[in-house]
Simulated scan of single mutants.
Amino acid sequence: MKIRGFTAGAALLLSLVGAVALAPAASATGAQPNFQVPFPCGQTWSGNKASGAHTSWEIDFSRAGAAADLGDTVVASAAGTVAVSANQGSVNGFGNLVKIDHGGGWTTFYAHLRVRSVSAGTRVSAGQKIGEVGNTTKPGASLAAHLHFEVRTSGTYPANVQKAVFNGVPFGYPKQSVTSKNCGGGGGGGGTNPYSPEKICGSGYTVIDSAALGSAGKAYLLYNKTNGRNCVTTVKSASLGKASAVSAYLEVQGKSRVTDAGNFDYYAGPVTAAGAKKCVKWGGKVGATVYDSVFEHCG
């Protein structure tokens, strides 16, 4: 099945995709993760590699037609860390792209998203929402809404694109309808946020201040004595697993403000900057609730 409207942009994507400006994956030294279909548990999608833009084992997923698919939830195929969350349209035609590093040299690509629900550096679980099906691509070009999905290891494109295996079963190239058994976390909207500020900012960071954002979340300021850097993250406590407006910022006195803002499932940030012996202004926002500090913590 050919996805309507995709052929017009195929030559463009084919000519640009080899030049993708992304850091190459590490050597595939680890076993292949137990990848799952990148859609919520129980959904059935039609996968197709026959697009003219494909030269290897890429898959385009559609379900009910371009208009109906637009905005459908896309989830992580396996646990990992978000390596890229950016609009890559001008670089390679992928439009809104999320790339997840699963360790051992394995990565997955989720392209043409309408929105991205996670930021770079986010640790995600299998089944966690990372974005929505979209049609973003090269400026001035057009695509029908679909999800472009790839599994990659190291090496040169397209040889590094691997055949997809979902729940231990190889995908039936060139096309097949598959039902998701991706029934892990991330889809809910309630419960406890699995991410602490220390986990988000990383090893060596300690919370030195925080500010509640009503019942919706909390903004945190952390400091790392070893490297003299501050870190700010805004952690949600409501609408968990559902993309909603969240932001975090950090401004070292005399320097430009660093901000991370978007529709995220669990938190915004981390934003970091060198702040030893400098005053900092920091804050965050969840929905309409905002916290802005004065310049403080000047030690």
Rank of each mutant, 00 (worst) to 15 (best):
Y173V: 09
Y110T: 10
T107E: 14
G299P: 02
D60Q: 00
S256L: 06
G214D: 02
I208Q: 01
T55F: 03
Q43P: 00
K129T: 12
W45Y: 14
K255P: 03
W106N: 08
W282K: 10
G105E: 05
Y110F: 12
G65W: 09
Q128T: 01
F39T: 14
S154N: 15
Y195H: 15
V124W: 07
V74M: 07
Y173I: 09
G134V: 00
A78R: 11
C231P: 10
G185T: 13
K218P: 02
G262F: 06
A216E: 15
G228Y: 03
V246K: 04
N135Q: 14
V82R: 01
K175C: 08
Y205W: 14
V280K: 04
V115P: 00
G168E: 11
G9Q: 12
N227K: 11
M1C: 10
I130F: 06
I59P: 01
S27H: 01
E150T: 06
K278H: 14
K129D: 05
C183K: 12
V246T: 15
G89A: 10
K199F: 08
R114C: 05
S203R: 03
D101C: 02
S117N: 07
Q128Y: 01
C201V: 04
V115K: 13
W45K: 06
H146G: 02
L22M: 08
G185M: 02
T29M: 02
A19V: 01
P33S: 06
F6T: 13
D72R: 08
F109T: 06
G241A: 03
Y157N: 04
K242E: 13
A64L: 14
G140C: 05
K285D: 01
A11D: 14
S85P: 01
G275F: 04
T136W: 04
N87Q: 08
R123S: 15
W106D: 10
V280W: 04
G185Y: 02
G155V: 08
V74A: 10
N160C: 05
N230S: 15
L240I: 04
G187F: 14
S203Q: 07
G187A: 15
T206S: 14
F35T: 09
V235G: 00
P174D: 11
G287T: 04
I100S: 01
Q32M: 15
S51G: 14
G155N: 07
S180I: 11
T44K: 11
I3F: 11
V82Q: 02
C201Y: 00
G93H: 11
G131R: 05
G131P: 06
P197A: 00
V271Y: 08
Y266V: 05
E58P: 01
V207Y: 07
A8P: 10
D69N: 05
K285V: 07
R63L: 09
G172D: 13
L97S: 07
A120D: 03
N230G: 15
F6S: 11
V37K: 08
K225L: 13
T122W: 09
K138W: 13
G217C: 10
Y195R: 07
